[in-house]
């Protein structure tokens, strides 16, 4: 009971520390929330992008364009050669007329196709790969180029790989930002707690002389740092939610495949923001108060 009473008193003092200077407290929380939001936002975007990539139903394929002069015999030979390559699970032939017809069905392309004097598209063999390993795609692409009657080869998994790389880069940027911003949050709460302690130096000295332990003296500042961090974490979660909603609304029309089902801010993100904010706030306050009244001769 005594333990609980002392912690309850410390929390009450921490709240009074925050409410004594409401504008300063609010500004500190806003600054901390912004610092926390940046890495959280980067992590949320990267995770959303990686999840969206995983959802894309893109069987890895390699398109092999045949030379215009290639006849049926050359096409069949190329198809056989392609089927024989390791890593190729299926080969489908798309005649140039069918390809043009497909192109004409794409919104806005009908008039363009109708205006063409001749069909510029080549006959195409589409090789479906057994796996999405970039190494397999690279091998098949390279060996398909050496097949007679082949005019060009295009890997259709390259853009997915690029998107994946971008998402990973964003994630690493998030990690880096996370480390830097965590240090910034700790430094800011350290400075705020130190300033508070200096402001109340006389009260700390008197309390120490009256028998206050180091824990008793530092406890309100620790709770203050914790509360400040928790509030900042909540603010960061709100910022991330708003930013993701805005990003989703902007990207959805242009990239439906990516935007569809992209993550909003779930409990996981809110909890991450609040807990990391609280932990960092507590750490900053602990660093600021760990030498308070540690010497008996505090006066």
């Amino acid at each position: 009971m005594r333990w609980l009473r002392m912690h309850r008193a410390a929390i009450a003092k921490a709240v009074s520390l925050a409410t004594a200077t409401p504008v300063l407290s609010a500004l500190v929380v806003i600054a901390l929330a912004t610092a926390l939001a940046l890495p959280l936002l980067a992590a949320a975007v990267a995770e959303g992008l990686l999840a969206a990539i995983a959802r894309i139903d893109a069987k890895p394929t390699v398109s092999v364009f045949l030379a215009p002069a290639a006849g049926t015999r050359e096409r069949e030979a190329a198809e056989r050669a392609l089927r024989g390559l390791p890593g190729v699970s299926a080969v489908r032939f798309i005649p140039r007329d069918a390809a043009l017809a497909q192109l004409a069905e794409v919104e806005g392309m009908g008039d363009l196709v109708a205006g063409l004097d001749r069909n510029p598209l080549p006959d195409t063999l589409v090789a479906t790969l057994a796996d999405a390993d970039p190494g397999t795609a690279s091998t098949v692409t390279g060996r398909a180029r050496s097949i007679p009657a082949v005019a060009g080869v295009q890997s259709d998994v390259a853009w997915v790989a690029r998107l994946d790389a971008v998402a990973r880069a964003i994630r690493w940027t998030g990690v880096l930002l996370g480390v830097l911003m965590a240090a910034a949050v700790v430094a800011a709460t350290f400075a705020a707690a130190r300033l508070q302690a200096l402001t109340h130096r006389e009260a700390i000295v008197v309390a120490t002389l009256l028998g206050a332990t180091r824990a008793w003296v530092s406890r309100p500042y620790l709770y203050h740092g914790l509360l400040q961090g928790l509030a900042a974490g909540l603010g960061a979660a709100a910022i991330v939610a708003g930013a993701l909603a805005g990003l989703g609304a902007t990207l959805a029309p242009a990239f439906p495949a990516i935007s569809e089902g992209a993550p909003g801010v779930g409990w996981r993100w809110i909890a991450s923001g609040i807990l990391s904010g609280g932990a960092l706030g507590l750490m900053g306050a602990w660093l600021a108060t760990r030498d308070l009244s540690s010497r008996p001769a505090a006066a």
Binding site: L209, L210, G211, T213, W216, S294
Partner: peptide
Amino acid sequence: ARAIPWLRRHLGLVMPDV
């Protein structure tokens, strides 16, 4: 340093510093 506060709780100090 940890024990000093417990000593002081058994003393009543009337001093300029307090």
